[in-house]
Design a protein around this nucleic acid. Structure first.
Lengths: 95, 95
DNA sequence: ACTAACGATAACAAATATGTTATCATATAA
DNA sequence: TTATATGATAACATATTTGTTATCGTTAGT
């Protein structure tokens, strides 16, 4: 018998993780995925993105390694030079 | 001659408001619009939404009156019971 | 071997949001 | 008029992120 839960099973256990928490975690995974990919695809180092965005390199490193959850100001500062923004969508629009 | 700028003119003046700041302000306007509308359309008071979401009523009031910019945790807690979430989109997808 | 650039991390101060509790003014209903 | 519910606000403590500065280990290039 299985002894531990998979990550997916853990994430879908409502008794442990609330829907809002799950949305937040999914968002963060989506965030760092697109963030790292876009940064590297533009050939930018963390230090270069730091200069462009106005967010310091240690803060970017903390975000990319998921040590912290960004504040909204920081989110826009980092995403904007990478060509992304965020928007509010109905939950059922989750394609 | 015009003496003052309209809000729109102010917002589009890159020397005063950076692109990232503009995105953030637009996001906040979109946020409180959908937030208040959805809350009232569901017939919920701030106190009721506070109970459902786990965010205290004073915090909700501060958000709706734009006294503070929410943290991402708070954002998901409030938006989730209202049927919304947030997602990362390319800037050119701004319809 | 040396240098330079990279991402990660440490430590502390500063900034900001939230929790908590209480209260206020206003509107609405009885 | 009295009572009740609403959104807004105050004051303070707590929590979390970011700034700041410095450094670390690793990798790539010379």
């Amino acid at each position: 018998m299985k002894q531990v839960k998979t990550f997916s099973e853990y994430m879908n256990d409502e008794e442990r993780v609330s829907p809002a928490e799950r949305e937040k975690i999914n968002f963060e995974i989506e965030l760092i995925g697109k963030m790292v990919e876009a940064r590297e695809q533009k050939g930018l180092s963390q230090r270069e993105l730091a200069e462009i965005s106005g967010v310091k390199q240690p803060a970017i490193a903390r975000l990319e390694s998921m040590k912290t959850t960004p504040q909204i100001d920081t989110l826009f500062k980092v995403l904007n030079p990478l060509g992304y923004t965020i928007s509010i969508v109905p939950i059922n629009a989750k394609k």
